[in-house]
């Protein structure tokens, strides 16, 4: 692993600057996902930076109707990642926020240009692996029955398509089972889950039923916010099904024991 191919150019290691945009949710609640991304990328020869100024993409504020507050966080985020050749985000919804919503946000002079310049270099994790690095076999080993929930913003915002599945299919020992009605929202939707808790819970109950129907031991997604939502219900119902971020599975090279962030009941840890 001596070089890195970005947009068709092979560049010697060290000359390409790759930043990890961990996202505020992962940073605060799921550091295990961040460590897994670092482990995974290092194994593939990519030495990521963690620009310490980063905080939050502003999605919660913008999507709840606080556009100006959200826009300030967007300005901050764009500034925090300037100068990097690639920005890797282990969250479909935060990556979609940057790509879809930043161009619509108000900003100081130069913000629009900075957004136009930065967004093509922002990659959700599986896009970075499959499109930029050109790998699907990341050398992972995870001997479990896994089902994958595509999450709305990854599916319909970023159009990730089958990238995550191609990566999962190459994981040794992993049995991938399809999730019925996978394209349906789990009911999280940020503050939707709070403002319309009853509808959100009804949507989540259907998602949980679909997960249980697969007989999977692990529910995997490329977004921890959706996983927290579904995992919280899986845990409350004491189903025994774990939720894991895709990065944690791809980072695993032997049966993991407690690699993931731990929540009461539903999340993390090997059985």
């Amino acid at each position: 692993m001596y070089g890195l191919t970005i947009f068709g150019l092979t560049i010697q290691e060290g000359s390409v600057r790759v930043a990890l945009f961990i996202t505020c949710v992962n940073d605060t609640l799921f550091p295990g996902t961040g460590r897994a991304v670092v482990t995974l990328l290092r194994r593939l020869g990519v030495d990521v930076d963690f620009p310490a100024a980063q905080t939050c993409c502003g999605q919660m504020h913008v999507n709840t109707g606080y556009r100006d507050e959200g826009a300030r966080l967007a300005h901050h985020t764009i500034a925090a990642f300037s100068g990097y050749d690639a920005v890797v985000v282990p969250s479909g919804s935060c990556a979609a926020m940057v790509r879809e919503q930043y161009p619509r946000l108000p900003g100081p002079p130069g913000f629009a240009a900075a957004v136009a310049e930065t967004t093509p270099r922002v990659h959700e994790l599986t896009e970075f692996l499959v499109d930029v690095l050109g790998v699907t076999d990341v050398g992972a080993y995870f001997p479990h029955r896994v089902t994958y929930h595509p999450t709305c913003h990854s599916l319909r915002g970023l159009h990730l398509g089958d990238r995550p599945l191609r990566l999962l299919r190459k994981v040794r020992g992993l049995e991938l089972v399809p999730l019925p009605n996978e394209e349906e929202c789990c009911g999280f939707g940020g503050t939707f889950a709070v403002k319309n808790a009853d509808v959100s819970a009804a949507m989540c109950a259907d998602k949980v039923r679909a997960v249980l129907d697969t007989g999977a031991e692990v529910l995997c997604a490329a977004d921890n916010s959706c996983l927290t939502h579904i995992g919280g219900t899986l845990g409350r119902q004491k189903t025994g099904v774990r939720v894991m971020h895709l990065a944690e599975i791809l980072a695993a090279t032997e049966p993991v024991t407690g690699a993931a962030g731990v929540a009461r009941g539903g999340r993390g840890g090997a059985a």
Partner: peptide, 20 residues
């Protein structure tokens, strides 16, 4: 309303940025 039907994720002892 959210936590009525779901377990709340537990805060880790150390954030990602602290670990880094």
């Amino acid at each position: 309303g959210w936590s009525d039907t779901r377990d709340v994720p537990e805060l880790p002892a150390e954030s990602f940025r602290a670990w880094w």
